[in-house]
């Protein structure tokens, strides 16, 4: 765990580009520098605000009435006007404070694979959670393959709102084919006003090659827009992504009355350019704090 934390923090530099022209490389280095600076400031802020006892307290009061009210007041994210800062609700982010590699790096491409066909909704939930965390109120573009819409059903506004993603901040782009999907995502990632771009693709397609992946990674590094590339019914393939994950649904923690609880995911890190070792975690989405919470699972 500590090992992972260290590697994640030290490895926050996005991939070094070997672009042919120096100008582009300069751009990337600049973007990397900015991303690093942002990240450091972010981390410093988080550490400064919550010392360990205070953190425990914050966790303890999560389910008290006061915390509920504050969470309700901050919803929807668009309501806190001007929330375009990258740090988001910094004080209420336990997993991020712990420096978890599952905290996806902004301004990079991340591949997220569904462990099996039936884990499509889980992997979308995982991506939506990260989109909420990274975008922090900025718009989210969700490029949706038509095939995924047929198989899983279309995204439901109430469900997204229930997860904590304001549907008003979501732009849904339907694409018939994978090249259209990738083109739309690339176009969207060029706009730095966008918080996160999610790509949902169904099936293995030739269009998902190294070139496509590298293009997306470069665009993302240049504009600072995170791209989460969700692949369902496809085997993990090599690519230029900063991290690669496999996600499956996990049994939720029961609520009183033996009711199904908050969404839980079993995530496996397959590859991380920052050097984090492959491992599996069980995460639970905490809607009130809009963050993932790690579940100790023995």
């Amino acid at each position: 765990m500590e090992n992972n934390l260290a590697s994640c923090l030290s490895g926050t530099q996005p991939p070094a580009t070997r672009g042919a022209d120096g100008d582009r490389r300069l751009h990337d280095v600049k973007a990397q520098g900015e991303a690093l600076a942002r990240l450091k400031a972010d981390m410093a802020q988080r550490h400064a605000v919550t010392s360990p006892p205070a953190r425990r307290l914050a966790r303890a009061t999560t389910h008290s009435g006061d915390a509920d009210i504050s969470a309700r007041q901050t919803y929807p994210p668009a309501a806190n006007a001007g929330a375009i800062s990258r740090s988001g609700p910094a004080t209420s982010d336990p997993v991020a404070r712990d420096g978890h590699p599952a905290w996806l790096l902004p301004g990079a491409l991340h591949d997220v694979f569904a462990a099996s066909v039936a884990d499509g909704p889980a992997v979308h939930g995982f991506a939506a959670g990260h989109a909420i965390r990274i975008a922090a109120g900025r718009p989210v573009v969700w490029a949706f393959h038509d095939m995924a819409g047929h198989e899983l059903g279309r995204p439901h506004g109430e469900g997204l709102a229930d997860l904590g993603l304001d549907p008003a901040a979501l732009l849904l782009v339907r694409a018939r084919t994978v090249p259209e999907l990738l083109g739309a995502a690339e176009e969207a990632a060029r706009y730095s006003a966008v918080g996160v771009v999610i790509i949902s693709a169904w099936g293995a397609a030739k269009a998902f090659d190294l070139t496509a992946s590298r293009r997306l990674a470069l665009v993302s590094a240049r504009s600072g827009v995170a791209i989460l590339c969700v692949r369902i019914a496809a085997a993990p393939t090599p690519g230029a992504a900063w991290s690669r994950w496999s996600v499956r649904a996990a049994a939720s923690r029961r609520l009183e009355g033996d009711a199904p609880g908050h969404p839980a995911f079993s995530i496996t890190l397959l590859r991380h350019r920052g050097g984090a070792a492959p491992a599996t975690w069980i995460l639970e989405w905490d809607r009130a704090q809009r963050t993932f919470r790690e579940r100790i699972f023995r």
Partner: peptide, 27 residues
């Protein structure tokens, strides 16, 4: 997106509840 308009507001929820509506809905 061109024609989108805010007609009503989204359903309110209690923060301690898990999501009560699905992420994907079949037509």
């Amino acid at each position: 997106a061109r024609l989108a308009s805010a007609g009503a507001s989204w359903r309110a929820f209690l923060p301690e509840d898990p999501p009560l509506r699905p992420l994907h809905l079949f037509r």
